[in-house]
Amino acid sequence: MQFLVDFFLTPFNVSFVSRALIAGCLAAILCALIGTWVILRRLTFFGDAMSHGMLPGVATASLLGGNLMFGAAISALIMSAGVVWTSRKSSLSQDVSIGLQFITMLSLGVVIVSHSDSHAVDLTGFLFGDILSVRWKDIFIIAVATALGTLIIFLFHRQFTALTFDERKAHTLRLAPRFTHLLMLALIALATVVSFQVVGTLLVFGLLIGPPATAALLIQHKASISLIMIVASLLGCAEIYLGLLISWHASTAAGATITLLSAIVFFGSLLTKSAISRLNFTA
């Protein structure tokens, strides 16, 4: 019994691991809430592009000795504005606009990083994060962002729902679908900026998409958006805890372990659901 207690709890008696757990759970909750809308509105490509598009801001902040999260925020805002501007000024679809911004920002980030003498190490940190180096100041920022994101989602729940399921009805009801869409893009940017230090710019997409996708898979009634958010939040926190635990005992990269676990949970749930459906059909 003592062995089990030591195995599951001892790592979190270490201060930097306990801070990582708190920061990770806060980021997981924010990503679950916003990621639910990303899944339902089919904005996964934008979420992926945004997670990579932060690289120029993060790289610039690192080279100048500034705050990485602030640099990421600036980069995310520029990319969001670029996507909207390109879509309005051209006849191209939003997916094309997102793709163009994606390759531009990612390439620019790599160019900036290449000016650093230790760019290989820096780039690894940018891409995969360092959750174990999270400070209390970072946790405070993540907590404020999570509270702000939760409040916005609560206040604009009706608008988001209308935009997701019937954009024309949102127009009819004067629910400002264009503003609502911009607000949703801003929330995605908020989630990616806050979470990149936990799992890195490359893997934040997994935290944003994994738990909400699993929750949406498990819950039959997609109209139960609040339930999907709750289940996704619980899954995200559980994956943060287990990911840190596995990383501690197996000496693996914490951010990558968390994201890989998220993918395993999704595909495991998909296989299980498929097997149950087949058994029910056979019976």
Rank of each mutant, 00 (worst) to 15 (best):
G243Q: 11
I153Q: 10
I112L: 14
G57C: 04
I112Y: 10
I152E: 07
S116N: 14
V194K: 02
N280F: 09
S87W: 01
S116K: 10
G47W: 07
P177W: 07
L182A: 10
L77I: 08
S262P: 01
I230Y: 02
L190K: 09
N67Q: 14
L4V: 08
D138Q: 08
L187D: 08
I225P: 06
A189H: 07
A256E: 14
G99R: 10
S75V: 01
G129E: 13
A81P: 04
I152W: 05
S195D: 01
L21M: 13
G109T: 06
S75L: 02
T252D: 03
A72K: 12
R158I: 02
A216R: 14
N280T: 15
S269N: 09
A73P: 03
L21A: 13
A232E: 03
A189W: 07
S133W: 05
S107P: 04
Q159K: 15
S91T: 13
I141M: 15
V58C: 11
V113N: 13
K222E: 10
R174I: 00
V111L: 14
R168P: 00
I209A: 13
C25F: 05
I225W: 02
T60S: 14
I74H: 04
T146H: 02
A73V: 01
H249L: 04
L207P: 06
Q101S: 09
V144M: 08
A28G: 07
V199E: 09
L182V: 01
L185K: 09
S75A: 14
L227K: 07
R19V: 01
I230Q: 03
E239K: 02
A120W: 00
Q101K: 00
I228C: 03
I78Q: 05
I228F: 01
F267E: 08
L190M: 15
S262K: 05
S80W: 01
A263T: 14
S277V: 00
C25A: 12
A32Y: 02
D122G: 11
R42Q: 14
L261A: 04
H157G: 00
L148F: 09
T161Q: 10
W37R: 07
H221M: 01
